[in-house]
């Protein structure tokens, strides 16, 4: 794809960025007196939420789908963005494998957009024809399947697939030849590994589990991270600080809410640089991530309103904005 195609896509994205919620909108939303008022405010902005529904999953999914449809209609070849959507493929694989064992309906757990067709993935798992899956899913699918058969341990199978997803995302980002997408994939892997290590520390998981759960596909030293997770939060903070994540280090020493927010804000700090680019795939990727972040923020606020959290508590959880 040449620069001309990206010029068209970026121009369309810039127009649609006007439809994203601004910081003033979020301030208004946070200060809404209750859940119905917050939903009414969002509906005025065209979100089509159901006041009686507590999850509004369909409306959130619609928002994501709209963003992806815009990208699909603007780019000739969307495979360049595989590194940011491949996580949905691994999510779908998890759902398909688990439903195969529990007999549940995996279709309702399928997520879009994905690199490999979700229905074809479901068929491949149901018929145990992993050879029909794309190369990046085949090995992980077989390993996770074997693990579920042999141990029945869903958590370990999840960890295996999560690690594979992070490794695949980094590989795909390298193929995209976009420095921003690669940095994003590596930082995402680092944040995921840091979160895993932190949770392992909090729940007292053993060394063997940590070895399997931490992917090591980013810039963080896996061994140092696992060793720090066995020691404590301060040691984890030191590893993060040394790796160039001082805010994450500070967050891990504060509490899990702050740490999770800092992880998302670290990713935003990377893709927000595309806000002023006139060309390239980066503004397109950034728009999709901004839409996802927007949905996450709306979810956090609505959930806070439902649970009657104080305004300051909601503000503490809301992620920084792209626009």
């Amino acid at each position: 794809m040449n620069e001309l195609h990206f010029a068209y896509a970026v121009a369309r994205i810039r127009c649609n960025e006007l439809n994203l919620l601004t910081s003033a909108d979020f301030e208004q939303l946070i200060s809404a007196p209750d859940y119905p008022s917050a939903v009414a405010f969002l509906n005025d902005k065209g979100w089509e939420l159901d006041e009686k529904s507590e999850s509004n999953a369909a409306a959130f999914r619609r928002k994501r789908d709209e963003a992806w449809e815009l990208i699909q209609s603007s780019l000739e070849d969307v495979t360049i963005l595989n590194s940011i959507i491949v996580f949905n493929d691994f999510h779908n694989l998890k759902a398909a494998l688990k439903c195969k064992f529990t007999g549940g309906d995996a279709k309702k757990y399928m997520m879009q957009p994905c690199v490999f067709n979700a229905e074809a993935l479901l068929d491949a798992v149901e018929t145990h024809r992993f050879d029909l899956l794309p190369a990046f899913l085949q090995e992980s699918a077989q390993e996770a399947y074997d693990m579920l058969v042999q141990t029945g341990n869903g958590q370990r199978a999840d960890c295996l697939l999560d690690c594979a997803a992070l490794r695949t995302a980094v590989d795909m980002a390298k193929k995209s030849e976009s420095a921003m997408l690669l940095t994003l994939a590596q930082t995402l892997a680092d944040c995921a590994d840091a979160k895993t290590a932190y949770r392992c520390f909090r729940t007292g998981k053993d060394e063997k589990f940590m070895e399997q759960a931490v992917s090591g596909s980013g810039k963080l030293d896996k061994e140092a991270l696992c060793a720090a997770a066995r020691s404590g939060a301060e040691e984890l903070a030191q590893v993060l600080d040394a790796a160039g994540y001082p805010r994450l280090a500070k967050g891990i020493l504060t509490d899990s809410v702050t740490f999770e927010k800092e992880c998302d804000d670290a990713l935003l700090a990377i893709y927000i640089q595309a806000k002023h680019s006139a060309f390239g795939v980066e503004p397109v990727a950034a728009y999709y991530l901004a839409c996802e972040s927007q949905v996450k923020n709306v979810r956090i606020i609505l959930s806070g309103k439902l649970n009657r959290l104080p305004q300051q508590e909601i503000e503490r959880r809301v992620r920084n904005l792209y626009v």
Binding site: E3, A7, Y8, A9, A11, R12, R14, C15, S74
Partner: peptide
């Protein structure tokens, strides 16, 4: 051509 491509993106939306 380059500006035209970018312009078409804007015209598509507005």
């Amino acid at each position: 051509g380059l500006v035209g491509e970018a312009g078409a993106g804007v015209i598509t939306e507005d």
